[in-house]
Design a protein around this nucleic acid. Structure first.
Length: 599
RNA sequence: GCGCCCUUAGCUCAACUGGAUAGAGCACCUGCCUUCUAAGCAGGCGGUUGCAGGUUCGAGUCCUGCAGGGCGCGCCA
């Protein structure tokens, strides 16, 4: 099954080939001039250049061949040599029925599935998510879903930041604050043997009520600041970090508690946002790989001593700039950020063996990843070109600087969601929507509206665009917004319920009205939108499609009575509405958005 | 200093291998709820695509230069 664009492209390509011209010139695109045509082909213009012939003359040869195509009600040459095509109502109806019967709603699949790993969000221990995590989380989630829907085998990895100096800082800060924990650590560390499962259980139970994510969130910034100011404090934290990495029993147990309370809270928050991971691999998981990796890199002759550190040079012939080397071992002998990333590549190669890895991380890290990737290729840890950084733009406040709350702090993601949810409740009441819902369902609807508003505000922009974080815009409910999309979906659901009540069934789709034609043309364009999103790793193509589809439906809904139409037309239009809903919900799902049943 | 990215309507953003009249939403103006949800629909207003050259039958898109903005450039992650 293929969409109209592809089907027509084949026909036009054949026509070009018949005229002795390259078949690839026959590429068909949606028309720029919907008033003149449904589809167009610009190949004659391109051919004219190389063949040194009049484009209209070339087009004439092609259109003569196409005239017999039963799918087309009109083929004509326009302007300088554009080939304009209008699809017949019959062909359009046929395509609509095809999409209606297709579980994939007209979307194609990749020819050969690849194993894809998507690395996104990157939450850290002891840090609740703030607005800065929004982009990676929702763009990464959308990319994961888009790739999966296209047929690849995809896993999403949160890439948990659970290791390093920050952990030493936290261990110290927690012990300073709570004498009980300090005593517990001394007790567990002092016995020179691992903790038994029984002791572990008791210790975890004791820690449960004493150290929460809120405590960690409060202690960490203070400890980090103090570490910067006081060398002794910093040294102690480093020592604690080293002891943790040496798996000193008490510290290791305490650290596992940190990681667990953080993960539990984060998973809940992510889930509320419609973001769910298959893997929560942490930096700690690759710690054991680092020492042997360094040895191996050395054996391969890749490590170079430089200013007391050990580095891998990754510069290549033809580089326009001096790319820094990968710093593998610092002059103090410790592993660095890039070392962990390299070990992660190695770990993934061993555990999942991906064909391709997508790193959904801020654009500013582009150079860092380029360095890591090159080192990984040199080391043979991943095939050349299989690691890809999917950068996204930064999020700033209205002053162009990193976003801050009025108090000057970072805005927590939960607070943002709650603010938007509150606004959603107000707006639902104002518009007298959801009045018949019970309180729980009402809250659920408000939550879905809020999440849709937040996600769509971000995902409608190309990921590379840096943008200004504007709360009003993020919680706007009119026009090109998430709630608009939900609203259209809910209107169809309401319509379908009413139809079911009246015993009206869907039937074969027959298009005739212009609004019906436009709607079917959009349903047909789903595959192309998905393709673009997949190829460019850019969810906004799906967002754009969803919006256009919702818009086309709304026009259709306004122009074409459904339930009051005569029976055959009524069944056709109901089927069209039903198909639109299913495709819209599929597109929304790819964006990580759910439509409520009512609103 | 070197390098990367950006500059499109008053604002926020789109624009498929270079193609016809550069599109949406917001804001503003005019209509439309006794018929399926008006968070909607129909229509209007709004552009020298930062500036200057170049390539091309044709440039928002490619090339060069300039201006303005953002970001990155081994011992933080």
């Amino acid at each position: 099954m293929s969409d109209l664009k592809r089907g027509l492209s084949e026909a036009v390509a054949a026509a070009f080939a018949a005229a002795g011209l390259p078949a690839e010139l026959g590429r068909v695109t949606p028309s720029d001039r919907p008033d003149l045509a449904d589809f167009q082909c610009n190949g004659a213009l391109a051919a004219a250049k190389t063949a040194r012939r009049d484009p209209r003359e070339i087009a004439a040869g092609v259109t003569a061949t196409l005239a017999a195509d039963p799918r087309l009600s009109l083929v004509e040459i326009a302007g300088l040599g554009f080939i304009n095509m209008r699809v017949s109502d019959t062909a359009l109806s046929e395509r609509a029925n095809e999409i209606a019967a297709d579980p994939r709603l007209g979307a194609g699949e990749v020819e050969t599935a690849r194993r894809i790993l998507v690395d996104y969000a990157g939450p850290n221990v002891a840090k609740p998510m703030h607005v800065g995590h929004l982009r990676s989380s929702i763009i990464g989630e959308a990319i994961k879903r888009i790739f999966r829907f296209r047929g690849d085998l995809v896993v999403g990895d949160a890439h948990f930041g659970d290791w390093g100096y920050q952990m030493g800082l936290l261990i110290g800060a927690v012990m300073d604050e709570d004498p009980f924990i300090k005593a517990l650590m001394e007790q567990l560390n002092g016995r020179g043997r691992p903790v038994t499962p029984e002791e572990e259980k008791t210790a975890f139970a004791a820690l449960e009520g004493r150290v929460s994510l809120e405590d960690l969130d409060r202690l960490y910034p203070a400890a980090a600041a103090r570490g910067k100011e006081e060398p002794e404090y910093r040294d102690r934290a480093r020592k604690l970090t080293a002891e943790l990495q040496a798996k000193t029993p008490g510290y290791h147990l305490l650290w596992r508690h940190f990681a667990r309370v953080t993960k539990v809270a984060l998973e809940r928050d992510f889930h509320a946002l419609g973001v769910d991971f298959d893997l929560w691999k942490g930096e700690s998981d690759v710690d054991d790989l680092i020492a042997p990796m360094v040895k191996e890199l050395d054996a391969k002759g890749l490590l170079v001593d430089d200013q007391g550190a050990r580095i891998i040079r990754v510069a290549r012939q033809g580089d326009k700039r001096d790319l820094p080397p990968l710093l593998v071992v610092s002059s103090e002998g410790s592993a660095m950020y890039g070392t962990t990333d390299l070990a992660t590549v190695l770990d993934r190669e061993k555990s999942f063996d991906p064909d391709h890895v997508l790193y959904v991380v801020d654009q500013r890290q582009a150079d860092h990843f380029e360095v890591v990737f090159r080192a990984a290729y040199l080391a043979g840890y991943a095939p050349e070109g299989s690691l890809e950084h999917i950068g996204f733009g930064t999020m700033n406040g209205t002053d162009g600087k990193p976003f801050k709350t009025r108090e000057g702090g970072v805005l927590k993601l939960n607070d943002l969601i709650e603010m938007t949810r509150t606004k959603a409740r107000e707006r639902l009441r104002e518009a007298d929507l959801g009045a018949e819902l019970d309180p729980d369902a009402f809250d659920d609807t408000a939550h879905k509206v809020a999440v849709a508003a937040l996600k769509f505000a971000d995902l409608q922009n190309f990921r590379g665009t840096s943008y200004v974080f504007d709360l009003d815009r993020f919680s706007s409910f009119e026009g090109k917004t998430g709630p608009y999309l939900l609203y259209q979906a809910v209107r169809v659901k309401s319509l379908l319920r009413k139809a079911a009540d009246e015993g009206v069934k869907t039937g074969p789709i027959t298009v005739s009205d212009p609004a019906e034609r436009d709607l079917v043309l959009l349903l047909d364009a789903f595959d192309q939108a998905l393709n673009d999103a997949y190829d460019k790793r850019a969810p906004h193509f799906v967002a754009e499609h969803a919006f256009k589809l919702a818009q086309a439906f709304s026009r259709f809904y306004a122009a074409c009575p459904i339930l009051s139409a005569e029976p055959v037309l009524r069944s056709s239009r109901l089927a069209l509405a039903d198909t639109t809903l299913r495709q819209l919900e599929q597109a929304l799902d790819l964006l990580g958005v759910n439509a409520p049943a009512r609103m």
